Simulated assay, not measured.
Amino acid sequence: MRHVNWEHADRRLLAALRDCGRDPRVAATARALSHGGEHGAVWLAAGLVCAAADRERRQGWLRGTALVGAAHLASMGVKRVVRRPRPRLPRLEPLVKTLGRHSFPSSHATAAAAATVVFGALRPAGGRLVPPLAAAICVSRLVVGVHYPTDVAAGALLGGLTARLGAGWLRAAPVAGRGGDSHG
């Protein structure tokens, strides 16, 4: 059986995706996605907007938004423990600046995966609209050169797991107009 050198594969895939950022249109899109995903901002804002707009499931949206925030905080805690440095690629500088020096797991991917799970559980449209944007934000972190693929994969796993752990709490949110039925 052939041994896979994960570190080598991680760096090669990162270099290939970061190289895509040489195209100015790709770089601009990746920067915009990366900035939008900072601290889970796009997901937290979306959750609050949906809570304001969808009165029937307001409590669910607020709980889902809280789960996204909790997932983001969990990723920050893991980063403080693992302390993996951000990647450095020869001749390919990162396309964005980062506030932190640590890379594992990707907090962008953590929040994106959590949003995918919780927003999809709240409304069918969330299950169709959120995953492509979440995937694009995850890939943007590779194109801008600030995460290894394994950072993104671990972040997505952490976000999905955090959201799944909170699924019971999310389902228990009261649904307005249903006489207390919380399973709408």
Rank of each mutant, 00 (worst) to 15 (best):
M1R: 15
H3E: 00
H3Y: 11
H3L: 13
H3R: 14
H8V: 11
R11G: 09
L13P: 04
L14V: 08
R18W: 11
R18C: 15
D19A: 14
D19W: 14
C20S: 13
D23R: 07
V26F: 06
A27S: 09
A28I: 01
A28Y: 09
A28K: 05
T29K: 00
R31K: 08
A32R: 07
L33R: 05
L33D: 01
L33P: 00
E38M: 11
E38R: 06
E38S: 10
G40E: 05
V42M: 07
L44R: 10
A45C: 10
A45H: 11
A46T: 09
C50S: 05
A53C: 08
R55M: 04
R57E: 05
G60A: 14
L62M: 09
R63E: 02
R63D: 04
G64T: 00
T65F: 03
A66E: 12
L67E: 04
G69F: 02
A70V: 02
A71C: 03
H72D: 03
A74M: 10
S75E: 08
M76I: 02
V78R: 02
V78L: 12
K79A: 04
V81Y: 10
R83D: 07
R84H: 08
P87E: 08
R88D: 13
R88P: 04
R88V: 13
L89F: 15
R91G: 08
R91S: 13
E93F: 05
L99A: 14
G100H: 13
R101I: 01
H102G: 02
S103I: 10
F104L: 11
F104D: 00
A111L: 07
A112C: 02
A112P: 01
V118Y: 02
V118R: 12
F119G: 05
F119R: 00
F119M: 03
G127D: 02
R128N: 00
L129E: 02
L129Y: 01
V130R: 01
P131L: 01
P132S: 03
L133H: 03
L133R: 00
A135F: 11
A136H: 05
C138Q: 06
V139Q: 04
S140F: 01
R141Y: 03
V143H: 07
G145D: 06
H147N: 05
P149L: 14
D151G: 12
V152C: 12
V152D: 05
A153Y: 06
A153E: 04
A156S: 14
G159W: 15
G160R: 14
G160K: 13
L161D: 05
A163L: 11
A163Y: 15
A163W: 13
A163R: 13
L165M: 11
L170T: 01
A172R: 15
A172D: 14
A172K: 15
V175E: 01
G177E: 10
G177W: 06
R178F: 02
R178C: 01
G180T: 00
G180P: 03
S182T: 12
H183T: 13
